[in-house]
Simulated assay, not measured.
Amino acid sequence: MFREKAFLAGLALLLLYLLVALLASWLAPYDPLEISGSPCESPSPDHLFGTNDFGQDLFSMLLLGSRATLFFGFLGACISTGLGTGLGVFSGFLGGRTDRVISGTLDVLMTIPQLPLLLVLSIYLRPGLYLLCGVMGLLGSLTQARIIRAKVLSLSTENFVYAAKGLGLSDFHIMFRYILPSVFPLTLVKFLFGAQHYMLLGVGLSFLGLGDPEIVDWGQMLHQVYSGGGFALGLWNWFLPPCFAMVGLSFSLSLLGYSLEPWLSPQLRHEKQAFFECD
């Protein structure tokens, strides 16, 4: 019962964020990159969260910033989940030389530290949003592939796989018809937690001043707070709105990941039932 309530709460909160991101252009009263008031205005009916040291409306920046933050997280999660699931399924099910080549390549690539590489790319190459998401997704897919591979190795010894092979079905047919649906619950949960991770990572890069200055996001707002002395002056209207927005978004994804894992996995449901029956 608690997990069902957690799922509904997480889904409702995430849908609210998505709706705000889609309607941000209509909801925002001003262009977030244009000067719409005097510098450092306090919250008022004209500027709900006030303005920053450039005179830009903070409420408009918060609304428009949700787009880049959500896009950063979900695109990175899509790349890492899709690539990692594909590699994991091929490696675990085909085995042999294919498994050795893929696993060896993953072992080498996993030695590359993710955050330092992103910092170097951001400092020296100034890549765009898509390239950063691609690099993050590529590096994140390595761990995803190892997890999916371990799951597929256990599924490969199940009776339904032997029965499918006995019927003469090809390996690709078995992988796409039977293996992929079996690993889908794990893939979905990893996607949600991956989106949460990449959103926070993108905000962190922007906070360090390594994001795209032409794209408004919550990390850029916090960077302006830090560089403009907002933290030292205690200007809560500068930094609390993006902080609470990030906490709420991260919390919604955590609730969904927590609630979906046993709900989508029959094995976990059976283990839970057995645990209560033993009590």
Rank of each mutant, 00 (worst) to 15 (best):
V135R: 09
Y198G: 04
T69F: 03
P127Y: 12
T111G: 13
V189M: 05
G257D: 14
P242F: 04
A232Q: 05
P116V: 06
P43H: 09
G76T: 10
I179D: 13
W238E: 02
M246R: 02
L210P: 10
D57A: 14
L256D: 13
M61R: 15
M175R: 02
L64M: 11
V247R: 09
S265P: 00
L63G: 04
G229E: 15
P127A: 01
Y17R: 11
T69C: 03
F72P: 02
M221W: 15
G37F: 14
M175A: 10
G92D: 13
S170C: 15
E41D: 08
I174R: 02
L33M: 12
P185W: 00
G228H: 12
G194V: 01
S25G: 12
L208M: 10
F176C: 08
F184V: 07
I179H: 10
H270V: 13
Q196W: 11
Q114T: 07
A28V: 11
M1H: 08
F59Y: 12
G194C: 05
L260R: 13
A150K: 11
S91N: 12
V225F: 08
L235D: 07
G140N: 07
S254G: 09
G248I: 03
S252V: 15
L16G: 04
G92R: 01
A9H: 06
G55V: 15
R3E: 04
G84D: 04
D217N: 13
G76S: 09
L205A: 11
A164H: 14
G166Y: 03
L188M: 07
K190Y: 02
L22W: 00
Q273K: 01
V161E: 10
R100G: 00
L15S: 10
T105S: 12
K190N: 06
R126N: 00
L118G: 10
S36A: 14
G248V: 09
D53W: 10
R149K: 13
A9C: 10
G248A: 11
K165M: 05
F193P: 01
L208I: 15
D107Y: 09
P29D: 02
Q196N: 11
L138M: 11
A195C: 06
L8D: 03
G194L: 02
L119A: 07
G204A: 13
L19C: 08
A150V: 04
L200D: 05
L208G: 12
H223N: 15
A274V: 02
D212N: 10
L94Q: 07
N52K: 13
L253P: 02
V108A: 13
L64K: 14
C133F: 05
W263M: 01
L210M: 12
Q224Y: 11
Y178L: 07
A68C: 09
L200H: 03
K5C: 02
P29L: 02
C78Q: 09
